[in-house]
Design a protein around this nucleic acid. Structure first.
Lengths: 111, 111
DNA sequence: TGCATACATATACATCATCGCATATATTGA
DNA sequence: TCAATATATGCGATGATGTATATGTATGCA
């Protein structure tokens, strides 16, 4: 599977795909609608959408001749879970873990 | 500034840098320690660390001849905030927003 | 003082991936 | 048949990576 967190981040972080994700944050969009917003060619947008879909970031719904793309809830949820794994960083200031390498160090230096 | 969410995601999503971030998740590491873990050359690791530092993902502390790298709490926090912006996706099933394109659908039940 | 360690930084090079663009064709539905 | 998309190909440009190598620079130690 290509659905690791690392892969999803890589796919999302591409500038134009990031814009697509931000667009879809406000709700589903058709390919044509996305093309208008981005100013890219339709084939390029379709390719970006395919990569996003393969990474599980978006999902498609057919509606007449249009394909409606929307964000896949689970995708962002997985990323959220991953980020939460770092919550200890800003919750406990990592002082305990810092003791891993030494323990008699001058305190912090704040400019 | 190069500290946008999109940029941070791009920097973190590079495979070896992602490994570095995961490593630092368990606590600070010296450059040498990271080199041992990754199996990359020291110049390459230093470059990755510099990119991570420029993106505000890690911070450095000098300790004798060593440079101790650790995750920067705020960096992950910013990403967390960004992801939380999508919380409505899995919280409200996006039904309201989905009405943007069509509106004659069977309504959902919320417990 | 002199040397080794630990790292940063820089350069040069080859490679590889990806992107945008243009274009062409296939599919599906009104 | 037209409209909306998907998919594919070729192309050129760009950027990023790894490797090797060299140099600079503190720091610790004999």
């Amino acid at each position: 599977m290509t659905a690791t967190v690392q892969h999803r981040l890589a796919v999302i972080s591409e500038p134009n795909r990031f814009r697509i994700v931000e667009l879809l944050k406000d709700g589903p969009r058709s390919v044509g609608g996305i093309v208008d917003q981005l100013g890219l060619g339709q084939p390029q947008v379709s390719r970006h959408l395919r990569l996003l879909a393969e990474a599980g970031v978006v999902e498609v719904t057919k509606q007449a001749q249009q394909r409606i793309y929307r964000l896949h809830p689970d995708a962002m949820h997985v990323i959220s879970d991953w980020v939460q794994g770092f919550a200890a960083l800003w919750a406990e200031r990592m002082d305990r873990l810092g003791a891993l390498l030494d323990d008699d160090r001058a305190p912090e230096q704040n400019p």
